[in-house]
C-alpha cells in the first residue's frame, strides 16, 4: 500500500475507530490517543495490509485489542463472569431520566451492557456492519453474534420502555 493509498483509505477510518474505541474505553481523550496509536501501527504494516481481506475489519480489530490492552494496563478491565454477565449493573428507570437527552440515555444503557454485547450492538446498530464483518472483527461465530445482539437489543428496549413509562407517570 502506498502512502497515498494509506492516506485515502486508512486515515478516513479514524472516526469509526474512534467511535469503537470510545465504546470500549469510555473515555474520549484516551480513545483519541488509542486511535493515533492504531494508525501508527497500521502505517508500520501498510506493506502488509493489502493481504487482509477487509482492512476496515482489521483496523477495528486492532483498535479493540489496543483498547483492551489499555483497559488492562490501567486497571479498568472488570473481570466478567459469563454467568453473571446478564445481571451486571441494572439501570433503573430513574437513573435513565437523569439523562436529559435520548442519546446520552442510550449511551449509558449501552455502557451497562456486558462487553461482548456492547461491542456487537455498536458494530451492528451504530456502524451497520453485516454479521460476517462483525465476526471477523471480533473473532466470534455468527450464532454467538446473533444471540448476543438479540440480548443487547432486548435489554436496551426494555429499559427504554420502562423509562418511557416512568416519564409518562411523572408528567
Amino acid at each position: 500500500m502506498t502512502p497515498q493509498q494509506f492516506k485515502e483509505n486508512i486515515l478516513p477510518l479514524k472516526d469509526k475507530m474512534y467511535r469503537f474505541a470510545c465504546r470500549i474505553v469510555e473515555d474520549t481523550e484516551e480513545a483519541q490517543d488509542l486511535v493515533q496509536e492504531v494508525l501508527v501501527r497500521l502505517w508500520d504494516r501498510k506493506g502488509d495490509i493489502v493481504q487482509y481481506k477487509s482492512i476496515e475489519a482489521y483496523a477495528l480489530t486492532m483498535t479493540r485489542n489496543l483498547c483492551i490492552d489499555w483497559l488492562r494496563t490501567s486497571g479498568r478491565l472488570l473481570k466478567e463472569d459469563p454467568a453473571e454477565m446478564d445481571l451486571v449493573d441494572p439501570v433503573t428507570p430513574y437513573d435513565l431520566t437523569e439523562f436529559r437527552d435520548t442519546v446520552s440515555r442510550i449511551n449509558n444503557l449501552i455502557g451497562h451492557l456486558p462487553e461482548q454485547q456492547r461491542e456487537i450492538l455498536h458494530l451492528r446498530d451504530i456502524e451497520g456492519y453485516d454479521f460476517d464483518e462483525i465476526a471477523s472483527i471480533l473473532g466470534l461465530n455468527l450464532n454467538v453474534i446473533r444471540v448476543n445482539l438479540s440480548r443487547a437489543r432486548k435489554k436496551i428496549k426494555e429499559q427504554l420502555v420502562k423509562a418511557h413509562q416512568y416519564d409518562l407517570q411523572r408528567n
Binding site: K14, D15, Y18, R19, T102, I106, N107, I156
Partner: peptide, 19 residues
C-alpha cells in the same frame, strides 16, 4: 413506538460522532 424511536434515533446520532 416512543422507546423504539428513541433507540433508532439514538443509534443514528451516535453514528455521526466524529473524532
Amino acid at each position: 413506538y416512543k422507546p423504539y424511536a428513541d433507540m433508532f434515533r439514538g443509534f443514528g446520532a451516535m453514528a455521526s460522532v466524529q473524532l
